[in-house]
Amino acid sequence: MSETKVPPAPRSTDAESVGGAERTQLQMILSRFVRHRAAMVSLVVLVLIVLGAFLGPFLWRWDHLVHLEIPASVPPGPEHPLGTTTAGHDVLGQLMRGAQQTLKVAFTVSIMGTVVGSLWGAASGYYGGRVDALMMRVVDVFMIVPLLVMVAAIAGNVRGGTTWYAVALIIGFFAWAQIARVVRGVVLSLREQEFVEAAKAAGASPSWIIVRHLLPNAAGPIIVAATLLIAVAILLEAGMSFLQFGIQPPDISLGQMIGDARTAASTRPWLFYPPGVLLLVVCLTINFIGDGLRDALDPRQTMVRR
């Protein structure tokens, strides 16, 4: 942090540039990310899963709904690669739709949580003093409620079916506190630096300084936290749907599939294992990507060796 970069390149992050004068910062970050093998593999796998979830339903002949032509409780075979349910769903069709809904919820939550959390944290850190104390108390309150219980209580309390965006809004409303903390921490050190001083002297308003000077310089930690928030949101949504308080039938999500198959794990394992494996793989890849991004954007905070 010794060499302060003044705004001309607002999207620059605070990574130390060690002997790479010819390369731009973005190139350096990219090359560091590419070197993180687990993250690269994860990225490929995740892209494939996302493509499968969003394009697969157009290609596969069954959707996630009950069809009379589908025989009940058929184990995986050529007609139905992942088998069918007792009611007459095609499990592959369900799986693709479920993954799609889960991912839509997770991405929405991540965007919402990141925007709200970053602005909240940056404002809190920038103003400091009483404002900071008050704003951080609010964050504390959001940190002490068990997230899953809170979102399940509210989503379950709403009668008449919850759709994916309602679920996303409810989770997003609660899931920003962690990012606010991270951003506040970064901003606390950034605001003492000369370029903020300079911006103030030039007559910039606080909101201008926060949005144009502080947040771009905190981009690294924000991107990492936003990535990890996707995984958190996926597990939250899955937990909610498992308890039957998330996305409601006839629509489907991965957690709901596991919840429905809970008692059939030994008799019809094809209903129980695929959605769980998919959830696990998606979260695992996202966490690895987050780790790779952390290494690429902030080389000092390495969690595992590359």
Binding site: L235, G255, I258, G276, L280, V281, C283
Partner: peptide
């Protein structure tokens, strides 16, 4: 241990519970 950590952090609790239940049976 690092890999177990990553795996555990990505694991849906209720699904793992179901697996453990099956394993117990």
């Amino acid at each position: 241990l690092t890999f177990i950590g990553f795996l555990a952090l990505a694991m849906p609790v209720f699904w793992f519970a179901g697996i453990m239940q099956q394993a117990g049976v």
